[in-house]
Nucleic acid binder design. Sequence first.
DNA 1: CTGGATCCGTCAGGATACTG
DNA 2: CAGTATCCTGACGGATCCAG
Lengths: 119, 119
Amino acid sequence: MSEVSENVGALANSVFANIANKWALLIIETLGTETLRFSQIKARMNGVSHKMLAQTLRNLERDGIVNRTPYATVPPRVDYCLTDAGRELQQTVHGICHWTRSHLDHIEAARQRFDSAGG
Amino acid sequence: MSEVSENVGALANSVFANIANKWALLIIETLGTETLRFSQIKARMNGVSHKMLAQTLRNLERDGIVNRTPYATVPPRVDYCLTDAGRELQQTVHGICHWTRSHLDHIEAARQRFDSAGG
DNA sequence: CTGGATCCGTCAGGATACTG
DNA sequence: CAGTATCCTGACGGATCCAG
């Protein structure tokens, strides 16, 4: 209960903070079961900056969610794909994306209701 | 091909930004199938501030994910629970929380590997 | 092409105080 | 107890340049 649990809590918290953000979830969803290069990922995601993509990709790699494979060619080429753990996570992330898409009208209606109610 | 952030863009993006953050996901997970008061939610969540809880709760309510029920008693009392749509979402969110918990050691190992590799 | 570093503006988010 | 407003700091995130 004392220190061990707190450490686990802190770790879980930092892990959660790493994956519970827009870019991380979108990267995971974008990768899916594919293997993509840096520029391909960037092209498929709307409005992600060079910096944030590199940074988030790096975090995901560090957590063993994304697999990074650099090739010593000229010009350089780096492939990214989900690890086994990453693919497990992708299943649930996909669920969120699916939910978001299929509830867009529901949410838009709820917002209008809320806003016109003087919220 | 139709990614979350392609054509549907603006709305999907704002919806996604609302739920794809640490506090929103943790609130959804904390609520689960229960009905809790403001102070109860705050007590169950680790390190959330009064402000962020109120703010995130408000966003979730606006998007029709959380149901807010105020009672005109003294002292005031407000109950929160997930809506039907919210409970659907909670299923997948729970998947992420479950994944995080069951992969903590995997991730910790991956981090140590990454850090000691001179990352 | 990939990715790190730097500068810099914007805003998330914590602390506090006040209302009902 | 619940919610809002204010202030303020640090982190996020974009643009750009440099390196391999």
